[in-house]
């Protein structure tokens, strides 16, 4: 299901224009990371994908639906949305009820709901926590509860606003594997993150926002190779990209494995 953004402009009620002249498409099955400074407009942009915010000018379509003429409840059938702050999202007293809320609104049978919820909780590693009160969980776990409620909707598109916040090494690895797995299933994943190393490992396309505009939009390697332009957005390339460049590797590397491969090659005997 394609996302199309056409000459999108947006201003909050206080009048500040936050998004300007955005036009792009995201095809079905793409893995896109959105990066940029605090206040660049990343969260504001993605809230247009599920109709939480409506354009001041221009339009956003999800498949054949214009977000302007569909409710947030309708959009939720196509776009799953993880909030930057999970506490904005969680309002039930039991983990199970929280995760079951979306599927029950879709009118699924109790058996189907049970199946969706169990699958979602097991994917985020919280199967043991279904009877707990979400507020008795650590913040990193609460984020995973919110993520499970997104997964339980089984939407073709998932938007994750800073899912890596507060996750430890294990949580990060689990999240990465989950994203890879969802891609295998043909889902479209759009993630916001300040963790460039994580973006490099799991995303094929990077969008760089600066002050409400799109500064760069391209393949991960091409975007992270542009040191000067990234610096303009006050960003730095991933650790491996910086290391590879400093060592004079012939190609741009972004992940640990790419770095090791390229580095080993420079040491092969020359004939």
């Amino acid at each position: 299901m394609k996302i199309s953004v056409n000459d999108l402009h947006f201003a909050y009620p206080n009048g500040v224009e936050v998004l300007r002249e955005l036009s792009f498409e995201i095809s079905s099955g793409e893995r896109v990371a959105i990066i940029g400074q605090n206040g660049a407009g990343k969260s504001t942009l993605v809230k247009h994908f599920n109709g939480l915010l409506k354009p001041s000018r221009g339009f956003v379509t999800i498949g054949d639906w214009d977000t302007q003429s569909h409710t947030v409840a309708q959009m939720a059938q196509r776009v799953g949305f993880l909030f930057q702050n999970p506490d904005e999202q969680i309002f039930k007293r039991r983990v199970f009820d929280e995760v079951a809320f979306g599927p029950s609104n879709l009118g699924l049978s109790p058996e189907e709901i049970e199946r969706h919820v169990s699958a979602a909780l097991s994917r985020v590693g919280l199967s043991d926590m279904r009877e707990m009160h979400p507020y008795d969980l650590l913040p990193a776990r609460r984020k995973l509860v919110a993520l499970a409620s997104v997964l339980a909707m089984e939407t073709p598109i998932l938007v994750l606003d800073e899912p890596t916040i507060g996750q430890d090494g294990r949580g990060l690895a689990r999240l990465g594997a989950l994203i890879d797995d969802l891609t295998q299933q043909g889902k479209t994943i759009i993630t916001i993150s300040h963790d460039m190393d994580f973006c490099a490992e799991h995303f094929e396309r990077i969008m760089v926002m600066k002050q409400g505009r799109m500064l760069i939009d391209g393949a991960t390697h091409d975007v992270f190779a542009r040191f000067e332009l990234l610096a303009e957005a006050f960003l730095e390339p991933p650790q491996m990209t910086r290391l590879g460049r400093a060592l004079g590797l012939p190609e741009t590397v972004t992940t640990v494995n790419e770095f090791l491969g390229a580095y080993a090659k420079t040491r092969e005997p020359r004939h």
Binding site: D168, P238, M240, L243, V256, A264
Partner: peptide
């Protein structure tokens, strides 16, 4: 121990650790 107990390890450290296994 960091990776064992599930703490994030930087890519610099990860790369060098893998490299040291191949004497790189």
């Amino acid at each position: 121990l960091l990776a064992e107990i599930g703490i994030r390890v930087s890519h610099y450290t990860q790369a060098a650790r893998a490299a040291s296994r191949h004497r790189l």
